Amino acid sequence: MKSNCMHLAVPAGDLETAKTFYCDVLGCKTGNSEAGRWVDIDFWGNELTLHQSEEQLPNVRHDVDMGAVAVPHFGAHLPDDEFQALKARIDAAGLEYLDKPYRRFVGDEYEQETFFIKDPNGNVLEMKSMVNPELMFK
């Protein structure tokens, strides 16, 4: 059996604050939930479960071509129009990028625009728009 839906559960801090960020800023929708404990988020077709928590994940930086990026992180690959609309929503909300939008691998088949942002609990998200998404796993 093959599925194209990934499930990821992360500590979210205060659920209401997290839901506001993921739904109102990023544009995601909620799914199943258990009040005060967890909520499922439709994260571009993937199931992201936000758990009420006290703890935050520690982040470290690893060197890559664009500099030192935060690890761990997760995110989504978006069509360019959705990626640009997401950047506009982030800017309209007055949020700061952890790592500002950057073009990687310019002129290469893997060319992409990417940025990093933290959610209210410190989870790091990397959002991408690939020029040639069909070549990602050739």
Rank of each mutant, 00 (worst) to 15 (best):
K2Y: 09
K2N: 11
C5G: 04
A9M: 12
A9G: 15
A18S: 15
K19Y: 03
F21H: 00
F21P: 00
C23V: 13
D24T: 12
V25L: 04
L26K: 01
S33K: 11
W38E: 03
V39A: 02
D40Q: 11
D42T: 09
D42F: 06
G45Q: 09
N46M: 06
L48Q: 01
Q52F: 05
E54V: 12
E54Q: 14
E55R: 13
Q56M: 11
Q56G: 10
P58L: 10
P58H: 05
P58Q: 11
N59Y: 11
M66V: 15
G67L: 00
G67V: 02
A68F: 04
A68V: 05
A70P: 01
A70C: 07
P72S: 02
P72A: 04
H73D: 01
F74H: 05
F74W: 03
G75S: 08
P79A: 14
D81W: 03
Q84P: 07
L86Q: 05
L86V: 11
L86I: 09
A88P: 05
D91N: 15
L95F: 04
L95P: 01
Y97L: 07
Y97C: 12
P101R: 02
Y102W: 10
Y102A: 12
R103M: 09
R104W: 06
V106P: 13
D108L: 08
Y110I: 03
Q112I: 04
T114D: 08
F115T: 01
D119P: 01
D119W: 06
P120I: 10
N121P: 09
N121L: 05
G122I: 10
L125S: 09
M127L: 15
K128H: 06
V131E: 13
V131H: 11
P133A: 06
E134H: 10
E134K: 10
F137P: 06
